[in-house]
Design a protein around this nucleic acid. Structure first.
Lengths: 181, 181
DNA sequence: ACAGTTACGTCAGCCATATTGACATATTTC
DNA sequence: GAAATATGTCAATATGGCTGACGTAACTGT
């Protein structure tokens, strides 16, 4: 595919964009900015986690357990899109070291519902704080409405069929962590 | 590295709570949306790459060599922030299989300047096309100005000290790939 | 009540990608 | 000519994915 045709496209940093599609010039700027932004975004937590002997995998598990107290193992697997074997390794470490606890489900005693301990919550919140600081710094540089613009862009970047699920997940988590508000 | 000191923070959630480093409620929505959006963003190329026996590492190398014809190995290492040993493995595969070629530097014959072959360019453009399609689809759902808003947000998310370098990199690449415009 | 399904765990092995550290080889620079 | 630079390579190690197979407890439906 793709003759790399030289389309002049005087797309300076001005507003009013070109309608880009697969046949036209790639969106080099956003492709690369996503790469760099995401790399830096995860680097802050990485540094802290390294001191605990943890990695990114632990972060993701801890994060979603913190956000979804009582989440089922199966649901966590679904969110992370990894196998139970992969999850098992990091989850075991988090449990053994007292960051996460497992409780039997009340209705269904096969389930191992996951909760963060106070120690786990502390770490999770610390990591979230780092990422929030970066986000807040970025949004502060931009005008009001930047938060909403970023949110809408990111939502639109998610697979169409997973989009609603993700948004429901986020909304549900907001309620879960704020039981009596 | 920041004592995690208490910071009272009248937290209406359950027991013994939350010390956010960033003295405010975490930006849960953007934190999670970045995770999901980026995961889907890289999944399209991943699927194609798998058919070639390549992975994400190959994609990154191919991408930046394509964008920066004649890039020095040292500069590529700097952009990717990996070690030369890590680069060496994937680069060797790309060279052996005819996606990338190395040429001696004219001024400095120690350098091995990197270029994509036509075959390499074709693959790089195919992958960029997939990511561009996703981006274009997202931007099309949002109003005009969404591209610029996304660009500014992502730039602001990059480490302050790397930001200028990244933007110069992108601008330079735009010129490099468009020699006779 | 029993068969089948579900939720979860675990053992074993493989692969990709990253790391550190040491060393080798040209080549350029001072 | 010595030192610094650009690159390559060998070896060992860690992390975090994967597949496949198997096990066990608990729920579900006829």
């Amino acid at each position: 595919m793709a003759d790399v045709t030289v389309t002049p496209l005087p797309n300076r940093s001005a507003p009013a964009q070109a309608e880009v599609n697969a046949h036209s010039e790639p969106s080099w700027d956003l492709i690369e900015l996503l790469f760099f932004a995401y790399r830096d975004f995860v680097s802050d937590p990485d540094d802290v986690l390294a001191k605990f002997g943890f990695g990114r995998a632990h972060h993701r598990v801890l994060h979603f357990v913190n956000r979804h107290p009582g989440i089922k193992v199966a649901d966590l697997l679904d969110v992370l899109k990894i196998t139970k074997q992969s999850l098992g390794r990091v989850l075991k470490q988090l449990v053994d070291q007292g960051y996460v606890v497992q409780k039997e489900g009340e209705n269904d005693r096969r389930q191992r519902l996951l909760y963060v301990t106070p120690k786990g919550e502390q770490l999770a919140m610390k990591l979230a704080g780092l990422q929030t600081a970066r986000i807040a710094g970025a949004l502060a540089e931009l005008g009001p409405g930047a938060h909403e613009a970023a949110r809408r862009f990111l939502v639109a970047m998610i697979d169409a069929d997973g989009r609603d699920g993700v948004q429901r997940l986020i909304a549900r988590a907001d309620r879960a962590r704020r039981p009596r508000s």
